[in-house]
Amino acid sequence: MSGPSEPHRPPVERFTKSAARNIFYGGSIFFFVVFVALTAHSHWYIVTTSTDEASMTASVIRGKHVWEKHSCINCHSILGEGAYFAPEVGNVWVRYGGRDDAGGAREGLIAWMEAQPTGIEGRRQMPQFHLTEQELNDLVDFLEWTSRIDTQGWPPNDAG
């Protein structure tokens, strides 16, 4: 309590620059550590629970490289991430009926890729990538494997 005889003092600034600085550094370190810890847990969860590492064969891995080499993601999206210019492929295996008829879905996907570009006027054109028989099959293996990732129920329907 300030008595009436006390000389006038400027108001004390409670939230100073150094307080703001300390909160910034301290808080950032705290949240970064929490984030890294949660990432570590997610890493463990992905390799043990949500993805099927056991069935991640050499052809699935080669298929991922085919996907990357031709930069498919700059038109398509996979698990919702990519360019939104062409359909989602995270569930393309399901959309092609792969769960019920694996052979039919494989044939359908390969036939589609081999038929590109359609050249139809006014329709988006997928390039012809001249994939070998093995590359085509590897890519389909990768897409099939991807469709089995536990994505918390996304996408809402087969349209992707």
Partner: peptide, 12 residues
């Protein structure tokens, strides 16, 4: 960004 890519549900 971790909702639908195979990460745990708590990210939601």
């Amino acid at each position: 960004h971790y909702y639908w890519i195979g990460a745990p549900g708590y990210w939601q």
